[in-house]
């Protein structure tokens, strides 16, 4: 056979080279970007991470959670509790928060995995509300009105404000790259095979011995841990937390779902495109008040009606493009062979 088999295409190889150049440019941002731009880019990276994780959860494992703000808020509060109450340095508190989130997700999963479909979605939201109400009871962290990160904790992070802003930026960039890399690695692993098999045909997957509960449990706990870690990073940037800000269903779930659905659920490229679209809309229209929210709603409706698979789904259907080579491709005499095969 003269055909060549590969996972990647010329496009995905080109995207890898281009991506590396962009990454180098982004990593150097503290030397060329202003403070406001860096803050915005840091926020973009954190939203990109949240969207990639929600996509893994809903788009691949079929777990449509509307309660991921439970973990964002948990991460923020864990950061504040560990630094203020336990005296842990902020940089250590971030990974510890992630670990804590994964631990908390174990009993939560055992509880909400009893629910299916819409009931599961509502259940996750209820859990997040319980977390919010719980956080409001912690008077050491300001109760319902929240608290700020003390100046000495902030100062201990880095020498000077510029260094701290650069550090927060690099952490956000690093986490975004790590989350996308991890999602890519999971989808190419056996767990990813099982996830995609479950998504394609649950009945066949079950009869082949795939344990649905365990597969979804692993994904849920992993995404919860990482979402908590991102929550800690978000509030390292914000320096202030309150129950309403930490556990906001709008900020940490509704916008994230918007990003994933607009970009293309069930693809790794979708959340990247969705994040860019979301921030483009926000940065150009945020001053217009409610018009901005109406515009978001209109975009969501139009995309769902005209391109239910999202913007990337539309591009892929038209061009067959794939930036992250998850599926296999055969190069060479494919077309002819398929035509012959059909006759057999």
């Amino acid at each position: 056979m003269s055909q060549r088999v590969t996972r990647s295409s010329r496009l995905s190889q080109g995207a890898a080279v281009l991506g590396l150049l962009v990454l180098i440019l982004l990593a150097a941002a503290p030397w060329w970007a202003g403070r406001a731009d860096m803050r915005l880019m840091g926020e973009i990276f954190l939203y990109l991470s949240l969207a990639t994780l929600w996509n893994l959860l809903a788009g691949y494992a079929g777990l449509v959670s509307v309660g991921q703000q439970a973990y964002v808020g948990l991460g923020g509060y864990a950061l504040f509790a560990l630094t203020i109450l336990a005296g842990v340095p902020a940089l250590w508190a971030i990974p510890l928060a992630g670990l804590l989130g994964a631990l908390v997700a174990v009993p939560v999963a055992a509880l909400i995995f009893r629910l299916r479909g819409a009931y599961f979605a509502i259940g996750t939201w209820v859990i997040a509300e319980v977390f919010r109400l719980g956080a409001a009871q912690v008077s050491a962290l300001g109760g319902g009105s929240g608290t700020s990160l003390p100046a000495d904790v902030v100062r201990a992070m880095a020498s000077g404000r510029d260094a701290r802003e650069a550090l927060a930026y690099w952490l956000a960039l690093g986490v975004a790259m790590a989350v996308i890399g991890l999602a890519f690695a999971i989808l190419r692993s056996r767990l990813g095979l099982a996830l995609m098999a479950l998504r394609d045909n649950e009945l066949a997957a079950r009869s082949l011995g795939i344990n649905i509960w365990r597969t979804k449990f692993i994904v849920y706990v992993a995404t919860a841990g990482l979402t908590t870690l991102i929550g800690a990073l978000i509030f390292v940037q914000k320096l202030r937390i309150s129950p309403d800000a930490g556990f906001s269903v709008n900020d940490w779930t509704a916008f994230v779902i918007f990003i994933v659905v607009i970009g293309g659920i069930g693809t790794l490229e979708g959340p990247i495109i969705g994040t860019l679209v979301f921030f483009a809309l926000r940065e150009t229209m945020a001053d217009m008040g409610s018009v901005y929210l109406i515009a978001l709603g209109v975009v969501a409706i139009v995309v769902m009606l005209r391109a239910p698979a999202g913007i990337w789904g539309l591009i892929r259907a038209r061009t067959g493009a794939e930036l992250f080579p998850i599926s296999h491709r055969v190069r060479g005499t494919t077309t002819k062979e398929t035509a012959d095969g059909k006759k057999a």
Partner: peptide
């Protein structure tokens, strides 16, 4: 092991990945 009616292959997976899934236990 069941060979289900209508085959029910996994559409997002290649031929070899479908086979590997079968042996994942």
């Amino acid at each position: 092991a069941l060979v289900p009616e209508g085959r029910l292959l996994f559409a997002s997976l290649s031929v070899e990945e479908n086979l590997i899934i079968g042996g994942q236990m």
